[in-house]
Simulated scan of single mutants.
Amino acid sequence: MEGKSYFEHRTDVKVPSASVIKVPILMSLMEKAQLNEINLSKVHRLTNAEKAGGSGVLMNASEGKKLTIREIAQEMIRTSDNTATNILIREIGMETINQNLTKWGATKTRLNRVMMDVEAVKQGRENYVNALEINALLRMIYDKKVANPILCDEMISMLKNCEDETTIPSQLPKDLEIAHKTGTLAYVRGDAAIVFTTQPFVMSIFIEGFDKEATAEKIIGDLAKICWEGLK
């Protein structure tokens, strides 16, 4: 992945991140693991108080369920689990995540609230991403420039296991490896991915102002297919 840019559109804007913000949360977790500040094998007991709605499976899990930090991170990516995400934000620290984003060169991508915090949204505190910055973060993972190579490979494996295939993967070959994280809000649909063709490439697409979610998903799928056909 040589860093060549093939197409850009509105790259100066920041958009509500939805769950794509979970990429830098995952990266920050692995940085902490690398520094031995977090043990990925540590067991966490789920409480009802920390359950969050929206996406994921942990909101329906029984109180007291035991999960390792690694399993919680896997669920944050696989089913975009909001309960898992909020547990990890507390473990890592929101300030640490934003400090890492600054260290990694991101100026527009920021974590300003936990998942499903309706009051924070009403107050104007939203999470934001920028397409170029998310691409840069994914390239850091691919190039093994965050945490260490073993942890970068683990992040890629988690991202390959993302269950939502209605966007970038939707029109691509089923056997094509795609490490990605999707995001969904009523007002934005996004996906950011490393696509493992013979010339691996990263892409981030965010659609705003759509009438139906399916319309946004088709646009993302169409654009991904165009990119794949040009770079396969």
Rank of each mutant, 00 (worst) to 15 (best):
Q171H: 14
I168Y: 01
I194M: 03
A193Q: 00
P173T: 01
E165R: 12
T166W: 13
G183M: 01
Y187D: 09
K181W: 01
A224F: 02
T167V: 10
G221C: 09
F210N: 04
E213D: 13
I219S: 05
A192P: 08
D222A: 12
T215H: 12
T215A: 07
M158Q: 12
E165G: 11
D175W: 10
L172N: 05
T167R: 10
H180S: 11
E213W: 12
H180M: 02
F201K: 07
H180I: 00
T182D: 04
G221N: 05
Q171D: 07
A179R: 03
A214Q: 09
D191Y: 01
D191S: 03
F210Q: 08
T215K: 14
S204D: 14
E165T: 13
T166E: 07
N161K: 13
T167D: 14
E177Q: 09
G209I: 03
D211H: 11
L172K: 14
L185S: 04
G221S: 05
D222C: 04
T184E: 14
P169D: 11
P169W: 04
K160E: 14
V202Q: 06
F206Q: 10
D222F: 11
I205A: 02
V195N: 00
K174S: 15
D211A: 13
F196Q: 05
E213Y: 07
N161T: 10
L159Q: 03
T215C: 13
K218T: 14
T198R: 15
A193N: 00
A224E: 06
I226N: 05
C162H: 09
I194W: 00
N161C: 12
D222T: 12
K174W: 08
E217Q: 15
S157N: 06
S157L: 11
A179M: 08
P200W: 07
K160T: 07
G209Q: 08
D175E: 08
I207K: 02
T166V: 12
V202I: 13
R189D: 06
I178E: 01
I220L: 05
D222H: 14
E177S: 12
G221E: 08
E163K: 12
P173K: 07
G183W: 03
M155I: 10
M158W: 15
I205R: 03
K212Q: 15
G183R: 04
E163G: 06
K212C: 07
A192M: 02
Q199F: 15
